[in-house]
């Protein structure tokens, strides 16, 4: 009975490995397509090495101790010794974790500081104002004076400063393949700098629960060559409709909307990064 169970148990990790190898191309975090995600990827790989080392040490020790010192008939007379501890050993296993933590802390702090600034200092960054609303993402390009909903186009190899804010619950702006997330909060302005190394379509989503249709707060980040991006901007400026205050109010109403494109931005009449009254009573002084 026991034998059988063990066999079954030992098969588990194997089956899991098989399954994972089938899914590995989906692991977006492990497929960075930009310098920010790459920094984080390197940090993750660095830490995984140490963690596997710890796991192996503990598991081996655990297995050896259990097998060697289990109660068995031939050791029936054995009486365990009374030991209080061992200062040297205890110092060793205090110092080793300290070393490991230090080895992890230094690159962590470095990376944490590095991510606050654009990687390419020589290229002028593109600024995009991101507004989270129930349950859609609004992207305003102040310099280009265009606005999109639920998708955002960016040029490759250019740092993009996403200025995040929200007109409702806290959302988190996350594009796994370009880099880690940051919160978009009402009355606040947080900044997330990302950059795409190559053209492509990247999944973005909200990572912080914001209510009923939170699961649908997905958006596409489309990285284009610089020429394609310029062409797209021009096309939008010329062909897309104008966003009116009234239209903007309807977009902000709770619900799901598809993709939209406009040839001006809502930044002209409202700044959500300053604390506003909620859109519901926006008629009386939205910009107090």
């Amino acid at each position: 009975m026991k034998q059988k169970m063990w066999k079954w148990v030992s098969l588990l990790p194997l089956s899991l490995l098989l399954l994972l190898s089938g899914c590995s191309e989906n692991m977006l975090v492990l497929q960075p397509k930009g310098p920010v995600a790459k920094t984080q990827y390197d940090l993750i790989v660095w830490s995984v090495g140490f963690m596997l080392f710890i796991i192996v040490v503990v598991f081996v020790l655990f297995a050896v101790v259990l097998i060697r010192y289990r109660e068995k008939p031939e050791r029936a007379d054995y009486e365990p010794p009374e030991e209080e501890g061992n200062t040297l050993l205890e110092i060793i296993w205090t110092v080793i974790p300290i070393i490991i933590v230090t080895a992890l802390a230094i690159p962590t702090v470095k990376a944490t500081f590095a991510l606050e600034k654009p990687v390419k200092k020589e290229v002028k960054p593109l600024t995009i104002q991101v507004t989270a609303a129930n349950w859609k993402w609004i992207f305003s390009y102040p310099e280009q004076n265009i606005e999109t909903v639920n998708y955002v186009n960016i040029p490759e190899d250019v740092p993009v400063k996403f200025q995040l804010t929200s007109v409702g619950p806290i959302n988190s702006f996350w594009v796994p393949q370009l880099g880690g997330q940051k919160y978009a909060m009402d009355g606040m302005n947080t900044e997330l700098i990302l950059q795409a190394d190559e053209p492509g379509s990247y999944m973005g989503r909200s990572a912080n629960f914001s209510g009923k249709e939170f699961a649908h707060m997905e958006f596409e980040v489309l990285a284009q060559t610089k020429d394609d991006f310029a062409k797209w901007v021009k096309e939008v400026q010329q062909t897309a409709p104008k966003l009116s205050k009234k239209k903007y109010e309807t977009i902000l109403q709770p619900g799901i909307v598809g993709r939209m494109t406009f040839s001006n931005t809502h930044l002209a009449w409202i700044d959500h990064t300053k604390q506003n009254r909620h859109y519901m009573n926006s008629d009386d002084g939205i910009n107090r």
Partner: peptide, 28 residues
Amino acid sequence: LAFIPNFVIGGVTGVMLAMAAADYQYHN
């Protein structure tokens, strides 16, 4: 006994989450 290996897995991934720059990718 089962606590020891299982908790170690939870613990080391906790350390990974503690690394702020990497946490931006794990968070939530």
